[in-house]
Design a protein around this nucleic acid. Structure first.
Lengths: 194, 194
DNA sequence: TGGATGACAACTATTGAAATCTGTCAGTAA
DNA sequence: TTACTGACAGATTTCAATAGTTGTCATCCA
């Protein structure tokens, strides 16, 4: 019926567009199909459910955040500075998304509450990044020894207020940046070898 | 009309009872008045609005948490142990309330979102408690020097995941206790003089 | 034959009218 | 005078009927 072949990527893009414009409650599978000029049955050929479609949007969005974090990575720096940079970059990425894409961010929060798999996978990636830096830091004598996995998770938990979407409403406050810096410094002091 | 005089305390107790039994959405001022055998106009003699009444319930409830924390206070211990005890006691108090009084806790979350005054007052009290211990610790050479207010707030922020009602849904997880202990240890290491 | 369609049942959201609630206040009664 | 009442207007909630959505699948067609 149409020239271009309908693929998953096209559907995800159209869905993201609609989510951004109309928000999660006003974006139906029927809307997505209309936007693409196909029947909604065709969308279900590519995604098993509405939830799966939304999940695909969120997943792509989180992958983008992940790539931004990877880009902020500078192996030349000492571990403490690398960790500070990683955490700061993550906060900035989340804060920016929450400010600039509020509709998509709302969708993310809804979905993160429903299917915790996607977001816990994201947290897992983050913990792994932190863990790698801690392992390096311990090996180089910069950080005190300990269980890297436990400590990495403690670092992520201690900074929840600045990256967990549950706290998004607090990120507008002008003190947020200073408070996050204070927590990061406290955490880094806690990691350092004595 | 009735033997006993109607006072604010009696109204708050009746309201708390109904909130606990029926939850925040099903508890009206009319219900409270009915429970007390008075007209709802009498309730408005003591509280300017439904919101003010709810606030009074929450306030009394938070005061109770505050007293529990004060009771857990042992000046004989070293500052690090006092801080650990304070934080642990606060986590336990919140977790218990969330588990045993889910209806009231839901009310608290609703109200904390509406009027942030009450809960930020509570956080302020908590920051002050932490600050006092830090000042003692710095004076005694146990903790590294720094701005006590900034550091105290950082400690409270770093432990948000374990005391902020926004995270209540995560407190059911069996790992919560171990994770909170890891964060507290990390924070205490960050405070210690080197 | 693989991709797309649209009718369909089951479920969820929207709507608007009726019921209930909030907050006020003139009036009652002790 | 003081605590309380109950009628009231305006706001909110409830409920049932209606409309729209989700997900399936027999059918179509290039």
């Amino acid at each position: 019926m149409r020239g271009e072949p309908l693929d998953a990527e096209t559907i995800v893009s159209a869905t993201e567009e609609l989510l951004r414009r109309h928000g999660p409650n006003k974006t139906t599978v029927l809307d997505v199909a209309r936007q693409l000029g196909v029947s909604h049955g065709s969308v279900y050929r590519h995604f098993a459910s509405k939830a799966a479609l939304r999940e695909a949007v969120i997943r792509r969005w989180l992958d983008q955040v992940r790539d931004e974090l990877a880009a902020a990575h500078d192996p030349g720096q000492p571990p403490a500075e690398r960790l500070r940079a990683l955490l700061t970059a993550m906060f900035a990425a989340k804060w920016t998304k929450a400010r600039e894409d509020p509709e998509l961010f709302a969708t993310f929060r809804v979905l993160a509450a429903e299917h915790s798999t996607v977001s816990s996978g994201h947290v897992g990636f983050l913990v792994a990044q932190v863990r790698d830096i801690i392992v390096d830091g311990v090996a180089g004598g910069d950080f005190a020894a300990g269980e890297p996995d436990v400590i990495a998770r403690a670092v992520v938990n201690a900074t929840s207020r600045f990256h967990d979407p549950k706290h998004a409403s607090e990120w507008h406050s002008p003190e947020t940046e200073a408070e996050s810096a204070a927590v990061v410094s406290l955490v880094l002091d806690g990691l350092r070898a004595r």
